[in-house]
Design a protein around this nucleic acid. Structure first.
Lengths: 140, 140
DNA sequence: CTTTAGATTTAGAATTATTCTAACTATCGT
DNA sequence: ACGATAGTTAGAATAATTCTAAATCTAAAG
């Protein structure tokens, strides 16, 4: 288990490259239950560090993603969203309201092998996207 | 089986809404083996109809997608690509060169049900994305 | 054959998301 | 403290896509 606070994979809390700005961006992503856009991260980061710039938010998000501390979700032509969950997982998107939720299909090894066989790619990762109607939209 | 030429799902060849420009855009997408961007479709459509505008290409692509005559693939933050294949299928993307290829996992019903169960969505469709190294990049 | 209404196309402006640039600042090792 | 390196800033630039308003086409009605 990771310690609850401040553990990120490669850049540890002691890594000098984890600057104040990057730390703030990381905290913002971690503090949110859902998947924020860069614009939302910028807004919230500004509350903590009013001088932070948009470019730094983007740079930090890229840096943190490369370090494996956060992950990026792109969907359709919409703005990227950033996710504190870095373990492999899947996404469902509501065709009615656009809501994006995480779920996890366990045991994707066989599926990945099947996909690799059919595409002739050397497999590195697999991701499942479900489109459908979310519970909220269904009950309206 | 669909007849080989000119069958699109809702807008048939006799549909007055399938204008000359839309027909040209449809032909361009159909004539390509791979997945063209809007810019590439525009370039090729211009060869057939030099006065066609960028906006019309986008409008036509949207229209044809809504009619179910073509499909749109979005991947990462890259430009959308358009695909003549409209049946359910999956995509593999090369993490080395970016190449995008189609493949098909048959029998996705059980997977879709499992995804629906875990996400609590009413399922409508499922899509699998494999990331990996394509045969060309592997042999270099 | 005109008129009209509605839909489509056009060219270019506008918008949105993201990246780039160049100057400035902070930090680290010596 | 000094210079090197890396990071931050503000704003410009870029890329993809959509919007706008005027012009054009089409089909139907008179």
């Amino acid at each position: 288990m990771l310690s609850k606070k401040n553990s990120i994979r490669k850049a540890s809390i002691d890594d000098p490259a984890l600057t104040r700005q990057r730390r703030v961006v990381l905290d913002v992503v971690r503090e949110s239950d859902d998947h924020l856009t860069a614009a939302e991260v910028f807004e919230r980061a500004r509350k903590k560090t009013p001088t932070i710039s948009y470019a730094t938010v983007y740079n930090s998000l890229r840096y943190l993603k490369e370090q494996g501390a956060i992950s990026e979700i792109t969907f359709g032509n919409a703005a990227s969203r950033y996710d504190r969950e870095t373990a492999r997982h899947d996404h469902a998107i509501c065709t009615c309201c656009g809501k994006l939720v995480d779920f996890d299909i366990s045991d994707t090894m066989e599926l990945m092998r099947a996909a690799a066989r059919r595409s002739r790619f050397k497999p590195e990762g697999i991701h499942i996207t479900l489109r459908g109607i979310c519970p909220d939209c269904r009950s309206e």
